[in-house]
Design a binder for these strands. Structure first.
Lengths: 168, 168
DNA sequence: CATGAAAGAACCCGAGA
DNA sequence: TCTCGGGTTCTTTCATG
């Protein structure tokens, strides 16, 4: 009864591809491309959103333009057993953490952090390390990207509080 | 090429925030919210795109819905000096690599990889390890996410080749 | 600010359970 | 028949010169 037969055919896939390439294309245009009317496309998109396949539409912004110029991954080691629920709470206290997950290997969790600059990153790191059951952290700073950066916006989807956001 | 004096005020920031929350909102609606006419908003958006601040508009899709159910980070160690340019080339050969960067620390690069399942991931890993100057890799598998997953779509912005994409 | 285009709603059609 | 997808038309809203 659950685990639906999945209404997920080739047309849906093509629509998703089109919308991932450009979320602002019109339904009519997409329809013309895949051989469907605008209405049919819209209905499918609505269904895909309903089903949670499409979780949103977002503008992708170059983080450096918003003043986020420093990026790092932080492995987190906890005292004793680390209950993911508590970890999630901690993570939400720090808007500079843009992604966080539990992982295999020595560390309990891996965080992706964006900061204004190295000084800001240090401050964030200290804040994280004073959290109750964090035992130690190991940071890896990102030097340069080898692929065109995907979406993944800045922390809290805004500009760092005290930046002077230039372009670049 | 730019790094200009930066035309970047509060209104621009508000527009960006609005578009990051929902890339399909109308200019008129955004304008009403921040006290600008639709036309003015459009002009600013055009300018922000022109300047490379907004790099695109994309639909965010739950990767698992597309059949990407396995996610890992892979630290890459190279023979001798690793020229980022060559590394970038290698990285582009594997569509399952969704992000790649050079980093500080022991490893030369860090890759983010999405695969259909563990078997597929193993295959990708073997493919990567047979690349010319890759000396060793250390993989960390993602177990669960502690924050609502940001955009960051599946590899090659499509579905894995031989999946049976269900929902959920 | 005026004009053409897109979105959205109401309605109809046809195939298959 | 009833349902599920698709198409058609019409009105309102939007994009854009």
């Amino acid at each position: 009864m659950n685990s639906r037969p999945a209404p997920f055919d080739d047309l849906d896939r093509k629509i998703l591809t089109a919308l991932m390439a450009n979320a602002r294309r019109s339904f009519a245009e997409i329809g013309a491309e895949i051989g469907l009317s605008a209405t049919a496309v819209k209905r499918r998109v609505d269904r895909l959103r309903e089903a949670g396949v499409i979780t949103g539409f977002t503008a992708t912004v170059k983080p450096s333009a918003l003043g986020w110029r420093t990026e790092a991954y932080v492995e987190v080691y906890c005292e004793g057993a680390a209950p993911p629920r508590r970890l999630a709470e901690v993570v939400r206290n720090h808007p500079e953490i843009t992604a966080a997950m539990t992982v295999t290997g020595g560390a309990d969790a891996l965080l992706h952090v964006r900061a204004r600059d190295v000084a800001h990153f240090e401050e964030v790191l200290e804040r994280i390390r004073t959290e109750p059951f964090i035992r130690k952290t190991i940071s890896v700073m990102v030097l340069s990207h080898l692929l065109p950066e995907s979406p993944e916006a800045g922390a809290s989807h805004a500009a760092p509080e005290e930046d002077a956001a230039e372009l670049r």
